[in-house]
């Protein structure tokens, strides 16, 4: 068994174990963390298969951003524990059916792929070759599929704006601070220097009681 094969089996075992843990963990935060581990191991698997850009992007996007927001929500909701007795039986049959369907689809795709297309080039699956499909992927995305990419970008932007508009309801009682105005404040807005003539006390008063002039 070569080193890369050994690595594959170790990573695959971790991936499967953490994926099982995602659905079996009682504590929601533990489940979310198992999902993080699953993503991370998946990324490592992809990198060993030569898809280093996809692997790193998976971690940056899903682990670095999406799952962080997930954890945010879980912590804010303060969900302690789900049901002590998971209702296995209720969900078992639909879950098995959906799982079987997905497995069937994947197997069909693989069989179809093996029949119609040529196998992966040897070098793609080996670890010895220096990884450089980032450049190729970039060329492909920004030259051949430029318009599709732009379209997807616009779609995401529209989705983002829609989400903000839907959730951002202005409350009547909300108080806002205009930071730009606060920063633009100058000395003249806050401070007024008044020039006053110095007060001179009457000479006879100072002569008799020096306390009045100074004071403590």
């Amino acid at each position: 068994m070569s080193f890369s094969a050994f690595l594959f089996y170790v990573l695959a075992a971790i991936l499967l174990a953490s994926a099982v843990r995602v659905v079996s963990a009682r504590q929601p935060v533990h489940a979310a963390l198992s999902l993080v581990l699953a993503f991370f191991t998946m990324a490592a698997l992809w990198i060993t298969l030569g898809a280093e850009f996809l692997g790193l992007a998976l971690v940056v996007i899903y682990v670095g951003a999406v799952m962080v927001l997930f954890l945010f929500v879980l912590m804010m909701l303060d969900v302690r524990q789900t049901d002590k007795t998971p209702r296995w039986r209720l969900h078992l049959i639909p879950a098995l059916a959906i799982g079987a369907l997905m497995l069937l689809e994947i197997v069909l795709l693989i069989v179809d792929g093996v029949k119609t297309k040529t196998a992966l080039p040897e070098s793609a699956a080996s670890m010895d070759k220096p990884l450089d499909n980032t450049r190729e992927l970039g060329k492909l995305l920004f030259e051949d599929y430029l318009y599709s990419l732009e379209l997807v970008g616009v779609l995401l932007l529209v989705g983002m704006i829609a989400a903000i508009v839907l959730t951002h309801r202005q409350s009547r009682f909300a108080k806002r601070q205009e930071v730009s105005e606060q920063i633009a404040v100058t000395r003249d807005d806050r401070l007024r220097v008044v020039s006053m003539p110095a007060e001179v006390e009457a000479e006879d008063a100072t002569a008799h009681s020096p306390d009045k002039t100074g004071g403590h």
Binding site: F53, G64, L71, F72, T134
Partner: peptide, 23 residues
């Protein structure tokens, strides 16, 4: 070859320590 992306990835993971410590 994707060294910069790798460092971005690692620095984006560091936030977990802080979230979990707080929680």
């Amino acid at each position: 070859n994707a060294g910069l992306l790798y460092i971005m990835m690692m620095s984006s993971i560091g936030v977990y320590g802080i979230i979990l410590a707080g929680w």
